[in-house]
Every structure is written in C-alpha cells, then in structure tokens.
Simulated assay, not measured.
Amino acid sequence: MKTETLEKKQNVVSLVAQKIEQSAGVILCNYSGLTVKGADEFRSELRKLGAGYGVVKNTMLRRALPDVEGLDEHLHGTTGVVYTGDDFAAAAKYVSEFSTKSKEVITIKCGVMDGAVLSQADVVAISKLPSREVLLAKLLGTLNAPITNFVGVLAGVPRKFLYALNAVKEKKEQE
C-alpha cells in the first residue's frame, strides 16, 4: 500500500515537472481566500491565455524544482501554481489584475523563470510590460522607419526636379 502512494506522489512530481518544462515559467500564488466560483473563473481565463492553474503541495514543488535556489522561503501555506504557457508576461498580467481587482483573495508569492526565483515585485513589473504583439509592432516600426525615410528622400529628388521644370514652364508661359 505504501508503494502505491509513493508511486502516485512520484507521478505527481513528474507531471508537475513536465508542465513546468513546457511553460515559460510559473507563478506561485496563495489562494487561501479563493472560492470555488473564483477558482473556476481564474482557471478559465488562464486557459484562454494558453496557461493553466493547479494546486500542488509544497513538498511536491520542492521535488519538481530541486535546482531552484531560494524557492523554499516561498513554499509555505497554500500554494497554487500558474503554468504560464508560452507568454509569461500575459499570464503575469492576468494574475496581477485578478489579485488586485477581483473580490477574490489571491496573492502572488513569487515566480520561477529560467531556473531563477522572481520576487513578487518582479512578477508585477513583468505584468506591466506591453504585450508581445505590441513589442513586436514597435520593433517592426523601428526597423521600417529608416527604409521609409530613405524612400521619402529618393522620391524627393524627382519631385524637386519636377518642381523646377514646372517653374521653368510657368516662367516661359509668362514671357
């Protein structure tokens, strides 16, 4: 009977580790004031972002993330794990908004990204960054600006030549 529970725990640890590997990172939350209805809303909105949410025992998290230094100080009390999917910033933005605007009580403990622990302030700072699409649009605009300016300069040469020809034409017509 003990081997069955040990196997179940090992399966949970490997499943959590696998979910963490597939995500850009995780956000650990204290969900002690979260109602069932609030948890369902929280999960469904995270799913829309390509993220997930689950409750994991602290000991299981320690085993799933053995190489992360400084994590133990955040693993106390109730711990909910937000698996961020591909976009850490979008998930962090939603979790931050939910924790501040919702009547449900959920607080960010920390985040883990690329094997490093992010403080609550770091996760909130990441949540305030523009979305990936906005950043890509700004980058493309920056890359496109010199080309657009160059085309404008090249188009200006024939335009000025036409203005000069028009001025000569008008002068000859007046004579």
Results as ranks from 00 to 15, higher is better:
156 G>Y: 03
137 A>I: 05
12 V>M: 09
108 I>T: 08
132 R>A: 12
20 I>Q: 05
118 L>K: 11
134 V>Y: 00
60 M>H: 14
61 L>W: 01
32 S>W: 13
85 G>D: 03
141 G>F: 04
23 S>W: 03
77 G>T: 07
10 Q>K: 15
6 L>N: 08
68 V>Y: 04
78 T>L: 15
55 V>R: 13
63 R>V: 02
56 V>R: 13
137 A>Y: 03
26 V>W: 01
89 A>K: 08
94 Y>F: 15
43 R>E: 09
159 R>M: 12
4 E>P: 00
22 Q>N: 14
170 E>W: 00
103 K>P: 06
151 V>N: 09
12 V>Q: 13
82 V>S: 04
64 A>T: 02
12 V>W: 01
109 K>N: 10
140 L>G: 08
120 Q>L: 02
91 A>L: 11
76 H>T: 14
130 P>T: 14
135 L>S: 10
16 V>H: 06
123 V>Q: 03
15 L>H: 04
175 E>Y: 05
78 T>S: 15
91 A>N: 09
152 G>N: 11
78 T>M: 14
124 V>K: 09
136 L>Q: 06
154 L>W: 01
15 L>D: 13
160 K>Q: 11
87 D>H: 07
41 E>P: 04
19 K>N: 13
122 D>E: 09
94 Y>V: 01
104 E>W: 05
96 S>Y: 03
40 D>H: 09
59 T>W: 08
18 Q>G: 15
141 G>Q: 07
133 E>P: 10
87 D>T: 07
89 A>I: 11
4 E>Q: 10
116 A>G: 10
125 A>P: 01
120 Q>R: 12
77 G>M: 05
42 F>Q: 13
116 A>I: 02
173 E>F: 01
161 F>P: 00
111 G>M: 02
121 A>H: 04
83 Y>A: 10
69 E>I: 04
31 Y>V: 07
148 T>L: 10
80 G>R: 01
124 V>N: 04
108 I>F: 02
107 T>M: 05
75 L>I: 05
56 V>M: 13
87 D>M: 08
134 V>N: 01
46 L>S: 10
147 I>H: 09
161 F>L: 13
121 A>I: 00
115 G>V: 06
17 A>P: 06
160 K>W: 00
31 Y>P: 03
126 I>E: 01
14 S>A: 15
26 V>A: 12
